[in-house]
Every structure is written in C-alpha cells, then in structure tokens.
Design a protein around this nucleic acid. Sequence first.
DNA 1: CTGGATGCAAACTCTTTGCATGCAT
DNA 2: ATGCATGCAAAGAGTTTGCATCCAG
Lengths: 144, 144
Amino acid sequence: MARRIDTSTPDRELTGLLHARGLRVTPQRLVINRLLRARDAHLTAEQLHAATTRDLPGTSLPTVYATLDLFVELGLVRRLRAGSTAVLYDSRTTAHHHAVCRLCGAVHDLDLPLTGETPPDVDGFTVERVDVTVEGVCAACRRA
Amino acid sequence: MARRIDTSTPDRELTGLLHARGLRVTPQRLVINRLLRARDAHLTAEQLHAATTRDLPGTSLPTVYATLDLFVELGLVRRLRAGSTAVLYDSRTTAHHHAVCRLCGAVHDLDLPLTGETPPDVDGFTVERVDVTVEGVCAACRRA
DNA sequence: CTGGATGCAAACTCTTTGCATGCAT
DNA sequence: ATGCATGCAAAGAGTTTGCATCCAG
C-alpha cells in the first residue's frame, strides 16, 4: 500500500494540544508541524525555515525557532545535538537512538534497543531520559 | 594522602605526543593541557581561555580553539555536546557517560556502566564509539 | 635559520531579543 | 475586543579564518 502523507492527523493532534493550553492555531504552526511529521528526518531550523517558506512565503526564521521551542514544550519534537554545530529537531518521540557519521555528519536512526533498561537515579539526580549516540563512519563515507 | 596536582606527568605525556608528530611544545599547549587534566571537569573553550589567561596573559581565544582541536586529534580530550549550546571539552578519555541537568545545564559524570556491550555494526555503519547522555534534574535543582 | 604556532581582527553561523503589527479566538 | 503570534532588524553567543609576527627546534 502506498504511503501517503496524512496531514489531517498531525493537524488534529496539534490543534488539540494548542486548544488545551489556550494557545492559537496558526498556519505557521500547522505547516511546521506537518513538515516535521511528514519526513522521519532530523532537520535543522534553517532547513525547516526553507521548507516552510515554500508553503508559506514570508515566514521568518525567528518564528520557526519560537514554534520549535513550543513544540519541544508540547512534547511533539525532540532537540538533538549531534555532529554538526546546529541543533537538529526530531519528530520521533518514541525511544530510539542515533548514529552520527564522523566524516559527513549525517544522522541516522538506530532502532536497536541499545539500552534495555532505564538507569536508576544516582546521587539525587533524577533521570528522565536516556540518549544514546553512536559515532562512527556511515556506509557511504566508508566506500570513499 | 593529599591529592596534589601533578604537572610533570601531563607535561611529559604531551611532550612525547608532540615530539612523536614533529610538533612544537609551546607554553600555551602545556598550560591548557595542565588545566584540562587538573580538574575532572567539562570545560568550555571560553572557560579554558579565562583560566589560561591567568597563567599566560595574552593567550588568544583562537589559540585555545586550535590547541583543543589538536588535543582532540591526539586523543587527549573529547568533545562533548550536552546541554548548553557551547561545546564542552572533557579530559577523561576512558569510557564514561554524562548526566545533564535539564534546568541548570550542569554536566556530571556517570560512572555506571550503562551499556555493557558495544553494539554491532548496522547497515554498513561502522561503530567507533558510544555516547550515553542521561537527561534529568540534578540534586541541587530538585530542591529548588 | 625556518616552518609551524601564535595573536589579532574580522567574518561567519546559529540563535535570541525587542518592538510594532496583525490575526485567531 | 484582547492579547498572543508574527515579522523584521538587530544583537548576541560561539567558532572559524587570514595574515603578519614570532619563536621552538
């Protein structure tokens, strides 16, 4: 079965979350949310801005940042610091980890359950999430 | 027994590595190396610059960056992207992981062996290192 | 001596802030 | 109508680059 991009589900989810908080449903928020969910990718704010501008010309970069901050708050996306200096935004919120290529900086998803267990709290530090990043060389760079 | 800061060992290690590569032993390199090894901390380039300037006034920030790049090459320190936007440099090169406080951004060492096993290569991706970052709230912030 | 390391200034990337305008509710 | 969201410009952090000078080998 062909996999089509379903915009109505992300739209409804976002609308629900925004209304529950008394926040507004704006075209920018809808479009950015759709972009994040359409591709299972790790996007920079810059890339999202470029993509958003295609659907909604005139959208500003600060708005993209503000929207991303909000989405992180809402639990819709995850911030990811890997490889490059830029922050990446990941729409997959289910537990999964990342493989970063040391040479080209590409970030791939790792579906291996690397850490089966959540570690216990240590020294009064309350653990909320575990991020595993694997560094190495991707298949494409290995060939070159 | 009191633990004093031993500069001669780091100095000798660095000198050996530099000579082996035909590189120069400069005061800046010695001082920055000592600073990194003296404290088991996670320091930003800015913090290292400030500390270096105390011992060696006039040292420039670009020199600190160049030196850190070299040290990463030599395997003396590890780059660490955690919490804040700034890159941290960690002098502990033995396998260990990090706990980042979501609120204050502090980075603590985690000595728990979270991942006993190195994961196998996946999809042609050659794994070289595994970084585990635990996110949560530190003891100090929890009280506040 | 000589080439590699440093210092300085400037540029560059990524991100945040302040304020006036505009639109969702 | 109300006030939150947006757009714009500008500032701010962190890092890199280019070039002249200098010093470790």
